Amino acid sequence: MIRYCSRLALLASIACFFSGCATLPHSSPLPQGSQLRKISPADSGSPFSLQEGDGPLAFSDESLQLLDLKTGTKRLLAKERPIAVAISAFDKRVAAAFPAGSGSIVRIYDAAGKVLAETTVGGRVTSIVWRNKDELVLAALSIKKYSFGAQLDSILYRWDGIGKVLAIPANGTTVRPYIAKMPDEALARTFAMALSPYGDEVALTKLKDPPNFTPFLQIFTHHLDSSGERQIGEAPLGSGGPVYAPGGEKVLMGNADGEARWIPLSGGKEAEAYRSPGTSIALSPSGTYALVDGHLYRERKEVTSFPPGTTGVFSSDGSVLVLRYRDAIYLLTGINDSPAPALSQDSRLMELRRLRSKGLITQEELEKARGKH
């Protein structure tokens, strides 16, 4: 069955290439009541961001564009192509990063396209998240290439759009020449970041290239206020993720050599999630749906598959899935997922999580203290 679906996906991909892909091919019928349509051309491999199901959608089409999904109206935000973009869930401001020499320019736009703030950071920005309505967290990778290889420095930045940017060194490593020869875009993917649903920490991947061993990714959680870090797992180079589960206590991480898997933050046993390498992963707000390497799952059962290379993002209200394949963006409506569950922001719980990040209490002590509260 898997081989059959893969063959269908390959045939669909070939057909899509010659037809111009007015409709994105898929291997089996879509979920009942859902509809799929092309909504815009887009730069291949470019970032895009969506919050609510009715938009707006921020994406790249030879420039930074903002698309109103209700009216189909586009607004030009910047003439440059962004390398990272994120829409705020609080007021629909758009944060975007653009290459600038060895660094990146970061701007914040309002919904009308006005530039509200701008700053420059070192390194190539690989991802942006809105921690809350006032603060951005950025991940950036500085790449310095030499004859013997390259020096890669991973940096986290915190910025409120007003004051100075706070830089937090995350990782520094020297890689061998065959890794250094990878395109900068591929090297940038080795430093991925996801924000916890609690908003207090991020999950990170860090590249390690030890002599005489195969390079790999280490997976960490980093508490944004305490700077406490904990390694929670490892993955082969080329793996996608991490992506937090809705409950915030485990992350979904790809395994380029095998299947995507759940990694518990408590340090417990990892669990298989999807029988796909997980080089690209998106999770719906409730966790019911997942898009893994172009395969759409509902409660871990494959619903349909799109051509290889298809990536996507779910809206925060669970109503739509935006897909990008090659140089076009598509909208899948009617999937009827649920919003993410509300998580407690109780000050006592947040303090316990901070203490755990510093290694001052164990997961068991956190659970016990939380139960008594």
Rank of each mutant, 00 (worst) to 15 (best):
P183H: 07
A180F: 04
K206N: 11
G233F: 00
Y109V: 04
S338L: 11
A140R: 01
T126Q: 04
S142N: 14
R75P: 12
K38S: 15
V320K: 03
Y198L: 09
G123M: 02
E201D: 14
L116I: 02
A186L: 08
S344T: 09
L30K: 02
K74G: 09
P277N: 02
S49K: 03
T71R: 07
I87R: 10
R348K: 14
K206R: 15
L283Q: 00
L77Y: 06
R324N: 03
D160I: 02
L332C: 01
R324D: 01
K38E: 12
A192N: 11
A170I: 12
G172Y: 13
P47C: 01
L352G: 11
T119A: 10
G334N: 03
A117F: 05
L67N: 00
E52F: 10
K181E: 11
G359C: 04
D54C: 07
S286K: 01
A97W: 11
A86R: 06
G268M: 00
T221W: 08
A235P: 05
S344H: 08
P82Q: 07
M1K: 10
S19I: 00
P31D: 06
G20K: 04
K368S: 15
L323N: 01
P31N: 07
K269H: 13
P99S: 05
D257V: 15
I162D: 14
A167E: 14
F148W: 14
R37H: 15
A140T: 05
L291Q: 01
F98M: 08
G258T: 12
Y297M: 02
K372C: 13
T119H: 06
R107P: 08
E299P: 03
S34E: 07
S347R: 13
G318K: 03
M182W: 15
V251M: 03
Y109I: 07
G45R: 04
R230Y: 10
A100C: 12
I143E: 09
V165I: 11
S280Y: 04
P285Y: 00
G238L: 02
T362W: 01
Q151M: 12
Y297C: 04
D153M: 07
